[in-house]
Amino acid sequence: MQQIAYFIEKYKYFLLFLLLEIIAIGFTIQSHSYHKSQFFNSANAISGGLLEKSTSIFEYGVLKKDNQRLAEENARLRSLVSSDSLHSENIDSLSIENKYISAKVIQNSYTKRNNILTLNKGRLDGVAIDMGIVNNTGIIGVVNKVSNNYATVLSVLNSNSKINARLKKNNYFGTLTWNGQNYRYSQLLDIQRQADIRIGDTIVSGGKSILFPDNTPIGIIRSFDATNKSYDNIEVELFMDMSNIGYVYAIQNIDKEEILELQKND
């Protein structure tokens, strides 16, 4: 007994150091597991509020780019909706599948291995866990934690996010992951060998995912290695510049509940 007391007395700082390290690593591992997500993250009132304030200062630097992006998107939407239907009232409300909620990114760390974004909209604004996040150029990520006024998003640039993607020209599916190297490039895995892929092919979101509408753009294939059995190292250049995202949209799929219910019954 005295031996133990002596041991603890002698190594008490080392033991305290070990204990604190174990707690810290515990939090780290917990943050890596999707959905069983951490108790502590930036989607709380204090850090969320402070981050929002600081972003509103830095925001002036990117206003020009944001405006340009909005103008481009407006032009694209106008060309999609012909001028007749723009003014007519009889848009069939049943045909609307997705509702969009706009939000601002108030925290972004694209150079980190596991990038998590913080948004300034939360539960009270209609944002919920598992909503897809896009901007006009493409897919950004998936909501993984919400508080009343803020939400965190598992971005495409995260080792835990696996996004269902397909080739635009045919329907071969794959999974989009990130190896942590360059934030402009993502990697496409599990593409069947018989799929005919070329450099320059466009990658879009797959219809299998209920988080994103089918055909949401992701990126362009820049390089790949082909062996007899499989494709390796398919590098996809992302359309969206993750280092510069101001405003994004959260997608609320109105039929999601119904689809999930159906799938559960199988």
Binding site: I23, T28, S31, S42, Q107, S109
Partner: peptide, 10 residues
């Protein structure tokens, strides 16, 4: 907490 990194910095 601010940078969403779990416990890495700690």
């Amino acid at each position: 907490i601010f940078s969403n990194t779990g416990g890495v910095n700690a």
